[in-house]
Every structure is written in structure tokens, then in C-alpha cells.
Design a protein around this nucleic acid. Structure first.
Lengths: 192, 192, 192, 192
DNA sequence: TATGAATGAGTGTTCATTCAT
DNA sequence: AATGAATGAACACTCATTCAT
């Protein structure tokens, strides 16, 4: 079906070029449909973008959720969340970049709000997982889980970026372990 | 002087719209100079952008450095770094966003590399501060200071974003304290 | 069809203004299409120019060739070549001017080479006709036919220019006769 | 003096780039004066161009005239005219190209007419030399000396072009001899 | 006499969008 | 459901020219 071909092509092109440098011509070319077909299926570039982002978010949340359905020790749960997000950030690097960072400006106002809401939803999803851990006394009682969720995402994004722009300095496992440690234990020994 | 007026206007316009939606016309208008004057002072849009970013980086590094020159307890040092970067992220919110995130795609290749190098330099700067702390045994010996620097930036960026899009939920002090705690102690009590 | 309308308009506008002063706006206006349509059909100004020139060259060579297919006395052959090129130079005066003269500088390097090759091809075409005459001993054995072809074109261009800028001094027949004589017999009686 | 430096630089830059692609910035740079100085000495780009062309024409005419002042056999006279013009066409190749060919369009109307007049004057100068030869019965009585002068220029220009774009195929002497022969004897043996 | 910062009209080009088919 | 030719507003950039010093 055209719609799917277009969405796949859009994911590629947006990822490779960012929102603005991605052109509808290129997407049509990559999807092997005529340009008109894009507009037959999606009302505008920004709406196509939004649909694509939405599916991405739903996918990561669903996969994470599925993985947490079976009862697991807390440590394992954290590790799996990290792993899923590292997958996303490393494999669909540019997509995740757009999704997590390029949403503050430069995108049409109408769609921007919806995209931000999607991101907030994702953060709420992560926060709710953390909240559960907090209830079970795994997390410091003074830690705000909303900010913590944001901080997890920020740490993942930023370290992935570093990892990707310094190839050969670390292994993927190093990265995973680092993020796990920094999130759980912080970096300092004790400074009080 | 025109050059300064232009840089100030550029900062505004790039911040409000992101690199691509910022137009040279708008910058000229905002700087109250003719369009040609932009090109008299800067050879291209991307070079203007680069100059602006460069000055921003130099400023934050210089101010941070100045503040760390006097001997301070480690806790205070960390707090000050956080404060300076919170200042940057909250006051020049969009600028910092561009600087720390929008550099992955969509900007002319030639300038992109220089910008990334600026960012790397900034991370090295932070990493060197952390490395010092590590030498004095304040930081866990297995923590990589490069990744840690990246993670600090990611945490700051992401939590600032959250803070800014959820007004009235937290105070600035909450934010500062949260970031300090999460960086130093992590979020978990003990899960081993 | 748009493509043809554009080529016709381009011919007009390039002829009247020369390559550089011809603007894509003017061409679009003259062709009664939107500016975008120019770029839908031709990738750039220089490529549009090249296409136009190419068609012109092909036309003159084809028409000349067609006329020489039937066996004719050498004198008649020469006259017909002259006539065809006078037609071109007098009727599409500016076009031929561009084609034969404006190709030395000021045109984008990439297209310039192709245009020069077209001109060389046309000269080879004329030279091959002359070469045949030479083989039949109509032409002085020491005359280089390549240079001779170039010289024929130069003479035609230059005398046409003179003719056009001195209206009423000569008839078209005068011109034709003059060129024929000067090419075949030269201007001097005998000076050795 | 500035004026001379500018004229020399203008000659270089116009020759290398053609009228339109030559920029006042480049000329100022090459002349090592500030841009304002160009406008202090010449009212506009086109006037600067005109002045330069005028000097060029005067120079070639003067040098040719000087050479013909002493009594010489007709053959030698012709050879010298050819030589002087070959010098001009081969050494200041682009300048002469502009002067002899690029004057039909693309240059500001106001100056264009004056430039054409300069060219006509030069042709009259050559024609007058030929006319003299004609009076002495060296030239066919039915040859119009005005057209002949134009034809000489056209032949020179065109063969020089060919010569320059086919390096190593001919020597300068070949060229000189060819032009002399074609002008004096034409290319055909006898076709009546 | 000379400067050079500033100008702004003009240029080629891009691209999301439309619509007749 | 799908097409692709056509659009036109918007864009980065150029450059001859001006003018206060």
C-alpha cells in the first residue's frame, strides 16, 4: 500500500536530512510513487512528519512495555529500558534526534504542539515506570520521577551522540554500563 | 557597530526559528541594517551562524573557567558549573538548544564540522574539570569523564526543557538541586 | 507544450540581452509560464541556454546537409552554404552572435565546454565539406580546411555585423556576392 | 597615479572574465585601491570599460599607423597589419574578443553606442588602408573595402580562436601565413 | 584625492502545494 | 487511487553604486 511505502521512505529521508532539508520530491522518489500521491495520502509535509513520529513513539513505548510485562528484578528492568532506547538512538539515530531535540523550533506551529504532546506522553510513560520503582523504595524519595525521566532521556541522547562521534573509543556495552551506572549511582563517591 | 548589531539580531532570530527557518531578511530587519550589510560582514548564513555559536561557546567556557579559578570545595564547584549552564540553557534557551542539539544534520557540511568541533571542545573542557575531581578521588574510578561530561550536558538540556514546558511545577532551585543530586548520587538507593 | 514555449522565449530573451543580462524572470514572463516551470523543465539557466544553442546548431547543420545531399557543382555548393549561414546570421542575428562569439568567457565553466564542443563540431562539419572540395582539387593544396572553415565563419559573422549596422548601404545580394568572392578568390589581384 | 593602475587592472579583469563577470571589487583589489577610488576616477563600470576600450583601439591603430608610415611593398604592409592584429588577438585575447564581438548586446545602452562607434572607426581606418591599395590596383576593383576590412577582422578573430582552442596543431607562423593567403588569394583555385 | 562601510534592487534557485486528468 | 506538470512565494546571495569621513 502507498501509505506504508511513503512512511518508510519518509523515515529514511527525514532521518538522513532533518526536517527542513528533507524534500517531498526525495520522499516520493524513495517511495517510488508520484509526488501527488504524497498529498493524496497526507495533507502536508508536517502532517506526514507527525504521523511518522507518532508511529515511532508508539513503537518504542509498546516494545518497552511488552518487555516489562513479565516480572523482573528492578535492575533488569532498568537495563532493558536503557537497551531499548539505546537501540532507538543508535539505529534510528537521526530520527530519534529529530524527535527528542528538533521539536523546539523550526517546525510548523500547528504540528509542533502535537509533537510536543507526544514527547510528553513518552516521558510520562517513563516517569510512571520510575514511579513504580520509587513506590517499592528503590529510588531516593526526594527524586522527582518526571525530571528523572527527562534526565534519563537527556543522558541517553547525549552519550549516544558522544559515542557516535567518537567511534572506536567505546563499545556498545561500555555505553550501556556507563548509562546504567550514572543513572543509578551518579558519578560522585560522596561529597557531603 | 554593524557587526555586533547583526550578531545580536542573529542570536535572536536563530533562537526563535532554528537555523533553517531563520532568514537573512529577518536578521537584517531585526538588526536594522540592509541585507547587503549582512554579507558585507559575514560571507554566508552558515558562517554567520558559526560565528555566533563560537562566541556563545567561548563565553560560557570563559565564565565557567573564571568562576573556578579560586579554590573551592568540590561540591561548590559542581554547583557553579550547573548554575552557569542552567543560566545559559534557561536564558538563551533556544540558542543553547541549537548549539547542543541542532548540529547533527541540516547544516552545511563545511560549517557543520567546525561547529561539532566547538562542541567537542566544550565537552573536553567539562571533562577536564571532572578529570581533576576524579584524580582527587571524588569521582567513582570506573566513571569515564568524557561520557560523564556528555551526560551532564544531556541531563541539563533535557531537564531544562521539561522545566520550561511545565511552568509553575518547579522552582529554579528545585531544578538546580535535582540536577546536582542526580549527577552526584544518581537516582537509585542501591540495587545491587 | 511548456518546454517549447520556454525555448522560444529563451531564444528571444537571450538574443536581445546576451546571456548575462537575460533573466529567468523575463524568460518566464515571455513564455507565459511561472518561473518554477522553467526549473521544472530545465535544471538551470546555463542548461537552458545550452539546450537552446544545441538545437540551433543541429538545425543549421541539418539544413545545410540536406541541401548538399543532391549533387551540385562546387560553386553552387559554396553559395548554398553561404546562403544558409547568412540566413542564420541575419535572421537570428543575436542568436548566432551568442553562439559564435559569446562563448569565450562569462558562461559557467561546466556548460561552456559543451558549448565549445558544439561549435567545434559545427566547424568540423564545415571543414569536412571543404575537405571534399580540396580532394577534388578545387581548393589550393596548401589551404588548411580547419582554419578555412573558421575563417569562413569569421568572415560571415563580421560582414553580417557590418551589413546590419550600415543599413541601406548594401543589398543582401551584395553581401552574398562579396562573401563568395572574398572566400573563393581573396581580395588581391596578385602581389607576388 | 590611481587612474592608470585602475585601467591596467580593469584590462586584466575584463579580459579574464568578460564584461559582466568582471566585478568592481576585483578590479579595485587588483589595482590595490579602495573601491571608492574607482568611482572617484570613473563615473561607472561601463564608463571605465569604455575608457579602457578606447585606449586599446587607439593603441592598435596608432601602432599600425606608425608601422605603415615608412614606404613598404604592399605585401609587407598587409603582413604587418596582420601581425599587429594577431598580436592583439593572441596576447590580449579576451580583450579583443570583447571589443570585437561582445559589443552587440549585454552592455549598457548609453556606452554601447560609443563603443560601436569606436569599432566603426577602427574599421574605417583599416578600410582606408585597403582603399589606398585599391587605388594602386592591388585589389580587385569589385571588392568593397569596407566589407573587406570587416572580413579581415572576422577572419583574424575566428582563426585566432581556432588556433587558441587547438593548441599544438599550428604554429603562430602557420596562422600568419594562412591568414595572409586566405585574405589575398582566397581558398579556391578557380571555379569559374 | 581617497576611503570602505553600507546599501538595496536584482538574480538564480528551491520546494511545498495544487489540480486537471 | 494515483499522477506529474505547473505554480509562486520565499530564499540566499551578488554587486554597482553612494556617501560620510
Amino acid at each position: 500500500m502507498s501509505k506504508d511505502k511513503i512512511l518508510r521512505a519518509a523515515m529514511e529521508v527525514f532521518s538522513e536530512n532533518g526536517y527542513h532539508r528533507a524534500s517531498m520530491d526525495e520522499i516520493a522518489l524513495r517511495a517510488q510513487v508520484a509526488k501527488g500521491t504524497l498529498y493524496y495520502n497526507f495533507p502536508s509535509k508536517s502532517q506526514l512528519f507527525k504521523t511518522m513520529v507518532k508511529e515511532g513513539f508508539e513503537d518504542i513505548m509498546q516494545r518497552t512495555q511488552a518487555d516489562l510485562n513479565t516480572p523482573l528484578p528492578i535492575k533488569e528492568q532498568i537495563l532493558r529500558i536503557i537497551r531499548h532506547h539505546l537501540d532507538l538512538f543508535l539505529e534510528s539515530r537521526h530520527f530519534s534526534h529529530i524527535v527528542f531535540n528538533e521539536l523546539s523550533n523550526g517546525i510548523e506551529q500547528d504540528v509542533l504542539e502535537e509533537l510536543k504532546e507526544l514527547r510528553r506522553e513518552h516521558l510520562r510513560f517513563l516517569a510512571s515506570i520510575l514511579e513504580e520503582s520509587k513506590c517499592e523504595n528503590f529510588i531516593h524519595p526526594d527524586v522527582d520521577t518526571n525530571l528523572a525521566a527527562a534526565s534519563v532521556i537527556g543522558t541517553l541522547e547525549s552519550t549516544c551522540n558522544y559515542y557516535l562521534s567518537h567511534p572506536n573509543e567505546y563499545s556498545r556495552d561500555d555505553l550501556e554500563r556507563f548509562v546504567f551506572n550514572i543513572i543509578t549511582k551518579g558519578m560522585f563517591i560522596s561529597i557531603e
